[in-house]
Simulated scan of single mutants.
Amino acid sequence: MATKKKKTKLKSLSLGRPPTVKYTASISSKATRTLIRTHHTLEKQRAKALADGDDAKAEAIAKEIEVKGGLQKYQKASLLGQSNDRGGDSSKILMEWLTPVVPMLREQLKNSHPVRMLEVGALSTTNACSKSHLFEMERIDLNSQSQGIKQQDFMERPLPVTENELFDIISLSLVLNYVPDAVGKGNMLLRTLKFLRTTKYTGNLQEFFPSVFLVLPAPCVMNSRYIDEAKLEGIMKALGFVCVKKKLSTKLVYYLFRLESATTKRNFGFKKEEIRSGKTRNNFAIVLK
């Protein structure tokens, strides 16, 4: 009689990522896109193998990822994708949206009450938000590539104890799509509530804060079997957010969700249900149980 395989619960982002290897060669624009797509596909396959309890398959996929350059090569490709000649850094869009409140951000900084930003999955210390010098920045990533980025898994980050440890804005730029399973994606969005301030803001600041800056590959929203814009905004609304800004392009979608009132719900009912059919659809999904 065959024994039932033990399933491995993906408790953190780090479980969905393989070891890293050194990589120094340059990457062309076309190769960059191919590398990122391949890396994401292999990561999803590895996450599924882990969830199914197939450790042998998961290990084989991890080795394949390592042969292809691992997380470090993926991050190099992502950094190249953020360079000016590859379309620029996504935080430029956020800074454009925040133009009306720049004077207030400067005033907050001058009065020693800076607006605090947590950048999850940070790859650089020189993006538009950092170079603006308008925020008190804290940057984290699973595999830090710079001295100004703390090596940390957001899902395992200690919860704030004092008001000073809370943030006014959390950046999830091309992070949610990396989470290996649909439940994990929902848990990440839910967890942002524990790190955002709930105090009232004055003037125009209340139009933008507290908030989550969410950036995803466009196909995650525009070509998924399980997610479209209406469902994404419905999920965020259930958590207590309202969409105040958005920009859709052929490659990326950008959203700024302001937190109006953090939810106290324990059951949400957002399942992995097909809302669009077709062989060309992808399987990006967010589940809030």
Score class of each variant (00 low, 15 high):
K4W: 11
T8C: 10
S12C: 13
G16M: 04
I27L: 11
T32D: 09
T34K: 12
R37Y: 13
R37V: 13
T38P: 07
H39S: 11
H40V: 09
K44R: 15
R46I: 02
A47N: 03
L50H: 03
D55F: 14
K57F: 05
K57T: 14
A58H: 05
A58K: 00
E59K: 13
K63G: 09
V67Q: 12
K76D: 09
L79I: 11
G81H: 01
G81L: 02
R86Y: 15
G88R: 04
S90M: 06
S91W: 06
E96S: 12
P100H: 01
M104N: 13
M104K: 14
R106W: 10
R106I: 12
S112A: 14
E119K: 03
N127V: 01
A128F: 05
C129R: 00
K131N: 14
R139Q: 12
R139N: 10
L142E: 02
N143G: 10
Q145T: 15
S146A: 14
I149M: 02
K150D: 08
E156A: 13
L159C: 09
V161W: 06
E165W: 06
E165N: 06
F167Y: 15
L172P: 01
S173I: 00
N177G: 07
V179D: 05
N187K: 13
L193T: 06
K194L: 13
K194P: 00
K200S: 14
N204F: 10
L205E: 06
F209R: 03
L216M: 06
C220W: 01
M222E: 12
Y226Q: 05
I227C: 02
K231W: 00
K231H: 04
L232K: 02
L239C: 05
L239R: 02
G240H: 01
F241H: 04
S249V: 04
K251M: 13
L252S: 08
Y254V: 01
Y255P: 07
L256I: 09
R258P: 01
K272G: 03
N282H: 06
N283S: 15
